[in-house]
């Protein structure tokens, strides 16, 4: 007989109630996992399945019986007997305010349609604060591969996590400053060529607001030629090494304009390296060029 293989302790199921309905999930799950199992649409900005929950955006907060304050669904682990409300007045209020406060300080026009849906659902009116300070600033273009437009940055920390221990372990960027002046920065705000950046582009892959963008996309948007409806997505495998990363080539007018990888892919978990992300130019060398 073969040697026994340790497969870990069996996981128990934990029962809790969300919005008055009972649900059982595997222990160690988060409230967000439970909400998703029940098909309760929960807004998230700083949460991503391939990153460690950092619970800074607070848009996923829910009301937990016995807790003085609201708790972040994305990171709070379920406990037996929890009573959670995801659509109470307090929850709706905080979610609305988070979206409004962000909308009043950041250009969120390139966020996903989902975010616009949440803004509508919670009745967010970012303009109601009047003329107030924003994080508007010029776009940083300091290399040929990607640009950083921090006037679109909601400080979700995702790029820092992807650059750090959650994916790349390069640590080229961090959160600098404090309070409203907090921002994503390299050391002393040096350009990316002087920083530790290895151009893996994993920060672009996780950015929810378009603050980090392929330069090709940025240039096409500036020229008014960016048209997602005219783009095809072709799945392929990266041709460089033997790891077998899956690539999604976004192609417009027979030209690759952007490369991504699915978050749930078993090899990449959405992350690539500089070759897979940006090394596609050779494909587009046409005869005679």
């Amino acid at each position: 007989m073969a040697d026994a293989v340790f497969v870990g302790m069996p996981k128990r199921m934990v029962g809790l109630s969300i919005d008055g309905r009972d649900v059982e999930v595997v222990e160690g799950s988060t409230i967000l996992d439970a909400c998703r199992r029940m098909a309760i649409d929960t807004p998230t900005l700083c949460q991503l399945d391939n990153l460690t929950p950092i619970n800074v955006c607070r848009v996923c907060v829910v009301e937990l019986e016995g807790s003085r304050v609201l708790v972040p669904a994305c990171s709070r682990k379920v406990e037996a007997g929890m009573k959670v409300r995801t659509d109470s007045k307090r929850v709706r209020h905080s979610r609305r305010l988070v979206l409004e406060l962000l909308g009043s300080s950041v250009d969120m026009s390139l966020c996903s349609p989902e975010v616009r849906g949440w803004m509508a659902r919670y009745g967010a009116e970012p303009d109601r604060f009047g003329a107030v300070a924003t994080v508007a600033q010029p776009v940083k273009v300091d290399n040929d591969l990607y640009v950083r437009d921090y006037s679109r940055c909601i400080l979700c920390y995702k790029c820092v996590e992807a650059c750090g221990v959650d994916a790349q372990n390069t640590f080229a960027i961090g959160v600098a400053g404090r309070g409203f002046d907090a921002h994503i920065s390299t050391e002393f705000d040096v350009g990316l060529p002087d920083s530790a950046c290895v151009y893996c582009g994993n920060c672009i892959g996780v950015c929810p607001t378009g603050a980090l963008m392929f330069k090709s996309e940025h240039d096409m948007r500036a020229a008014g030629t960016w048209d997602e409806s005219a783009q095809n997505v072709t799945e392929t495998v990266c041709p460089y090494c033997g790891v077998g990363c899956m690539l999604e080539l976004h192609v417009q007018d027979n030209t690759i304009v952007k490369v991504t990888s699915p978050l749930d892919h078993s090899v990449t978990a959405g992350h690539l390296c500089v070759k897979g992300r940006f090394g596609f130019e050779f494909v587009q060398r046409r005869r005679g060029e």
């Binding site: 800074v56 305010l97 300070a133 959160v175 404090r178 309070g179």
Partner: peptide
């Protein structure tokens, strides 16, 4: 509070800023 907010979470980072602006106004 605007000055001492660490800037990590949205309600406090932007909230303390808006609070100061609105009060000034």
């Amino acid at each position: 509070f605007r000055d001492e907010s660490c800037g990590q979470c949205v309600p406090c980072r932007v909230g303390t800023k808006r609070q100061e602006e609105i009060l000034e106004r």
